[in-house]
Design a protein around this nucleic acid. Sequence first.
DNA 1: TTTATGGCTGTCA
DNA 2: ATGACAGCCATAA
Length: 104
Amino acid sequence: MTTLYADVHDLVRRIPAGRVATYGDVARLLGRPRVARQVGYALAALDSDTDVPWHRVVNAQGRISPRGSGGSDELQRLLLEDEGVHFDDDDRIDLARFGWSGPG
DNA sequence: TTTATGGCTGTCA
DNA sequence: ATGACAGCCATAA
């Protein structure tokens, strides 16, 4: 597949454990700074048995996007905490510390 | 092809 | 700092 989805998946797979990236960052790394929304959308289309660490992607505020169903928003937090990512009292992540600036 | 819909983001108050 | 609004663009009907 040479679609945006595949590119997003490939990039997200490169996010190291214990790090997080924003949708905008992922989009920008792909060379499409305007498709941040589609990035989140691409992650939403992932399968349950996917190998893509979708939980390492959060919004620009360092918070988890409330999709409101599936409870994946809680799962995401658990997975991140399990990787050593620390959440603030406001359920926020310090992007300055855990933010991933790309492969280089 | 045209609508409709978003796991977002940046600006304004 | 928070709350509200418009832009942006790929996917699915």
